[in-house]
Nucleic acid binder design. Structure first.
Length: 401
DNA sequence: GTCAATTCACATGAAAGAGACCACGGTCTAGTG
DNA sequence: CTAGACCGTGGTCTCTTTCATGTGAATTGACGA
């Protein structure tokens, strides 16, 4: 595009009416005025948290439900309201929301406590201090004045999976060390089985109260979308049936409202990019492809070189759709000698394969072939159409021929 | 034919090392009065 | 005398290796019918 062409493109872009009114409404972090179809849960959360307002420690709360079932939203919504009330009445109530999955922020015990302490305005170095010291600083910081602290730990299952459940034990016992302040914990988990796998002592104190968020059904998702469409899009932008289709797609896999909103947003972006002023049914299908492709590409790019090479080893065997650990390792070793990389041990490759499975790039099944041993049966779990793209990407990243 | 033992090819767990990053406290050094 | 440079020690964290143990069904081989 020539310089003139480019500037006229930008001008055209500026003058063209966007299909969006406010894209933020469709993003996960948006907290709407009202929360749909979650009244019983919000009610229960409110009842459990209400003692905060009298500076009494509320019960610890454990909230679980699949992704996109509104856990985070409901907890944030309720805690916002309670915070407003507390501020009006001048009650020293502090609420912190921490996502334990965030890499390099709160995914270890040290970082979690450090992050909490930072929320109170004390700078904590990202490394270098013993964990005990960080705890000590944390205690002295919060125990300076009388206050009630509510800590919301989102994706707490990820944290425990990574670092073990000691941290929860420590957290639930914090109150014994504190003289003035009190802490209550709200744990959110996507994993329904999570609570059954932790230490019983921790379990009893963490989940004094439990709330389950069931998946939304297609009609509920439709409602949620309809509520947000007028805020997010201009009038008459959304064609007939688009909302229904979005809802149906999202309900198909475990009623994920976040996914429905993302679909709608990406569909809007695609329509806009094609220069249309309405969002049509087929934009939803395109959006689904785009989201999946972007997700996979993003993950592949973010992988360390070794994982990329292992993934490439799997992809390069395109004629067979099932491949086993030993074969992958063979191919991988050969590729290593070709490229001059030092090969990882089979033990490590085994773990990398499990990680790639977790990321949803490949599907892995541990099977026993009787006399012929036990192995992982590996197949791809990304759509065929995007495989060439990934291969090209990996070849470029790894500078393979 | 039946049934327990064997065997394979890894899976899975635990521990520990390497290397990067960082804080802290003590010591040294150069500049200042 | 003091501020700043420098160094050693000890901490976290990620990625990885090493060593050890676990596992599930096809196969094998002994046994009895």
């Amino acid at each position: 595009m020539s310089e003139k062409g480019l500037s006229s493109f930008f001008e055209g872009f500026l003058n063209k009416e966007s299909v969006f009114l406010d894209k933020k409404v469709l993003q996960g972090s948006f907290i709407p005025e009202t929360v749909e179809h979650r009244d019983p849960q919000i009610d229960k959360i409110a009842h459990i948290l209400a003692p905060c307002l009298r500076l009494e420690k509320p019960s610890n709360l454990f909230v679980y439900g699949k992704t996109g079932t509104g856990k985070t939203l409901a907890v944030k919504y309720t805690s916002e309201k309670i915070k407003e009330t507390a501020e009006k009445a001048n009650i020293p109530l502090k609420i912190f929301y921490i996502n334990c999955k965030l890499k390099r922020v709160a995914d270890t015990e040290y970082r979690l406590i450090a992050q909490l302490t930072r929320e109170f305005g004390r700078e904590i170095p990202s490394t270098g201090l013993p964990t005990d010291d960080v705890y000590r600083i944390f205690f002295s910081t919060i125990d300076k004045e009388k206050q009630l602290i509510l800590i919301v730990l989102d994706e707490i299952d990820q944290l425990v999976k990574k670092t073990g459940d000691e941290i929860l034990y420590n957290l639930t016992r914090i109150n014994e060390e504190l003289k003035q302040s009190q802490i209550a914990i709200i744990g959110l988990s996507n994993d329904l089985m999570f609570i059954d796998h932790i230490d019983p002592r921790v379990k009893s104190s963490l989940s004094e109260e439990e709330i389950l968020f069931p998946p939304y059904n297609a009609f509920q998702i439709q409602d949620i979308l309809r509520r947000r469409v007028p805020l997010a899009f201009r009038d008459n932008v959304i064609e007939q049936g688009v909302v229904e289709k979005c809802a149906a797609y999202a309900a198909r896999d475990h009623g994920d409202a976040r996914r429905a909103l993302e679909l709608l947003r990406v569909a809007g972006e695609l329509a806009e990019r094609k220069g249309r002023i309405t969002v049509a049914l087929r934009d939803i299908d395109d959006a689904e492809d785009t989201i999946e492709r972007d997700r996979v590409v993003e993950i592949c790019e973010a992988q360390p070189k070794q994982s990329q090479l292992i993934l490439y080893s799997i992809l390069s065997q395109k004629e067979v759709d099932l491949i086993h650990t030993g074969e992958v390792y063979e191919i991988y070793r050969n590729l290593c000698t070709q490229t001059g990389m030092r090969p990882l041990t089979q033990r490590r490759v085994s773990d990398v394969l499990a990680e790639l499975d977790m990321l949803g790039i490949i599907t892995v099944k541990v099977i026993s072939k009787g006399r012929y041993g036990r192995t992982r049966e590996i197949s791809l779990s990304v759509p065929q159409i995007i495989i060439p793209k990934i291969i090209a990407l990996l070849e470029q990243e790894l500078s393979l021929a």
